[in-house]
Amino acid sequence: MARKISYQQAISEAMDQEMARDQTVIVMGEDVAGGAGTPGEEDAWGGVLGVTKGLFHKYPGRVIDTPISESGYVGAAVGAACNGLRPVAELMFIDFMGVCFDQIFNQAAKFRYMFGGKAETPVVIRAMYGAGFAAAAQHSQCLYNIFTHIPGLKVVVPSNPYDAKGLLIQSIRDNDPVIFLEHKVLYTMEGEVPEESYAIPFGEANVLREGDDVTIVAFGRMVNFAMEAAGNLQKKGIHCDVIDPRTTSPLDEDTILESVEKTGRLVVVDESHPRCSMASDIAGLVAQKAFGALKAPIEQVTAPHVPVPFSDSLEVLYVPSVARIEAAVTRVKEYS
């Protein structure tokens, strides 16, 4: 039965249901229990924003508070995955990946390839990403593109509660390393989510809205901005396809190309910096494989090539806005 819950609850429920279903699923990370080994255990906080709250008592011994050492516990999670567990390791903010990147891109991502396909590494690394909390340059970045670049990793960027639950369940069941990225501003977003368990396959884009004029491809929080823009544009007579790829790796190229073949116009909305981004990646894909269909230059609506500003008034200007998306769509529509 579907009922309305938040993105945060959807993520928590996915871990809960998978831990109940499969004894090998464990959760580890900084403060994922919260106060383990101290008198605070009783009302364990469950992560900095409470996403893992309740799991510590429900699954004794399977929710592990780790030292503040990402290189240590992410490495331990990767090793545990190689030895039969399905760890869900939480890297509090994606910005901290620098200190454990070797464990991710040189170890987890390479095992299947380097051991002749015999090794499986079913580890999930969850992390918060994105601007909007005035959390400054070291806690606000949007770095899914960096993981997307690495073969051997699957990268998931859910934009709503329904997708968050189904994609996290798929991530936990997947036999390859998965980077599961949660936009912190979306944690309070509510939506209809079935109580039952369900898995959404990777590499299957969600088409949220259909229109013949312009294709908008957006990721994570930007999907909701794109939908708002498309709603406003419809009132002006511009009809948009809005596509959420849901996973940046694997990428559902067919859905994007089919849409551009219909509309001839593409706007990509990406909260990352513009260089070597999903925006430039998809622009390149379409320029190469759907060139003949294009009626206008491709527009990329991204953050600027600067660190995320701490000042909240500057941060609002930094993040792509509904108005910028509308302007970009209008430009490509009016071009021809």
Partner: peptide, 8 residues
Amino acid sequence: LKYKRLEG
């Protein structure tokens, strides 16, 4: 699709 994805 949402129906078809449900467990069972």
